[in-house]
């Protein structure tokens, strides 16, 4: 079941978004089958420079989609289009169509703030707020008014930390600052923070690049578990990681999406020469 059922209705979701949520609730049982998000002809310009040259990509519900490719190929840019984080960069311009549950997320009626409550994001470097562990998790639910009382908030915090596999490590020190945790714990805290808002999609931008192998293993395990409830899109430089955690993989190169398919196919039987070259380590 989706995360929405136990956190109540987000009070800030209004208009078409609320309709979207209801539609989602109605089709919840079938959701595993369809595409959660859909990008068609997405082009991004930073000023005069074109960063993406028309991307078509389907993101299936409750699966992990990995975006791989050499540095500067546009995979992070594409990821940031999916929750309109590029809006915060003044010179960025996005063309094309991206839908979430069939609805255009760049539509005038869509408030990017509400969109981001549905499409959460985890960043490359762990970025816990300089607050207590508890307040880090409670931040999102508070601004969206997801909890009506103290007890409910405690429950959301506990549940989010449990989902992120961090609960046992921090349950006795929820009042301590989140910045005091280790790097791997911080990143899991950030994932828990994203989960706490009950998003439908979680975007992860190289979530393990600042972590050591053990912390990476923890996070990868976590991604695999989260797949049950959330649609996940992950950008990674690490091909083994893409192979381990994802069901679908898209290979980006120089602003183009070269190839997309089931992860197994991409890694064992790439159709494009460039994909093969990158996967076998000839460049990138």
């Amino acid at each position: 079941m989706t995360a929405h059922t136990h956190t109540g209705t987000p009070t800030r979701s209004t208009g078409s978004l609320a309709a979207g949520i209801e539609a989602r609730a109605a089709t919840g049982a079938l959701a595993g089958a369809g595409n959660k998000m859909d990008a068609k002809g997405v082009k991004v310009f930073y000023g005069a420079k074109q960063a993406l040259k028309g991307i078509d990509l389907e993101i299936p519900d409750r699966q992990v989609t990995a975006l791989i490719g050499p540095s500067g190929c546009g995979k992070s840019t594409f990821l940031r289009c999916l929750n309109r984080m590029n809006d915060t960069i003044g010179i960025a311009r996005v063309e094309g169509l991206i839908t979430l549950d069939g609805q255009d997320i760049y539509d005038r009626e869509i408030d990017p703030v509400q969109l981001r409550a549905r499409v959460g994001m985890v960043f490359q470097k762990p970025n816990p707020f300089p607050k207590s562990i508890y307040d880090n998790i409670a931040y999102g639910p508070r601004i969206h008014g997801l909890a009506s009382g103290r007890d409910e908030m405690d429950e959301i915090v506990a549940k989010s930390l449990q989902r992120a596999g961090l609960w046992n490590e921090v349950k006795d020190r929820l009042k301590e600052p989140g910045t005091g945790l280790s790097g791997g714990q911080q990143q899991r805290l950030c994932i828990a923070r994203a989960v706490a808002v009950s998003p439908e999609v979680i975007l992860m931008d190289e979530p393990c690049s600042a972590l050591d192998p053990i912390a990476t293993a923890h996070v990868e395990e976590l991604i695999d578990e989260l797949r049950e409830n959330y649609t996940i899109v992950i950008v990674t430089h690490n091909m083994q990681q893409a192979a381990r955690v994802s069901q679908r993989t898209a290979f980006f190169h120089l602003g183009d999406m070269v190839e997309v398919g089931d992860t197994e196919d991409i890694f064992t039987n790439p159709r494009d020469e460039r994909t093969q070259g990158y996967i076998t380590g000839r460049y990138g």
């Binding site: 929750n83 915060t88 981001r116 959460g120 960043f123 970025n127 707020f129 601004i143 808002v197």
Partner: peptide, 20 residues
């Protein structure tokens, strides 16, 4: 990164400024 983290959770600009 702190601002991004906050925006990424669906916070508005003023919430981000006041609370983060």
């Amino acid at each position: 990164s702190l601002r991004d983290g906050s925006y990424g959770l669906g916070a508005t600009r003023s919430e981000t400024i006041r609370q983060v």
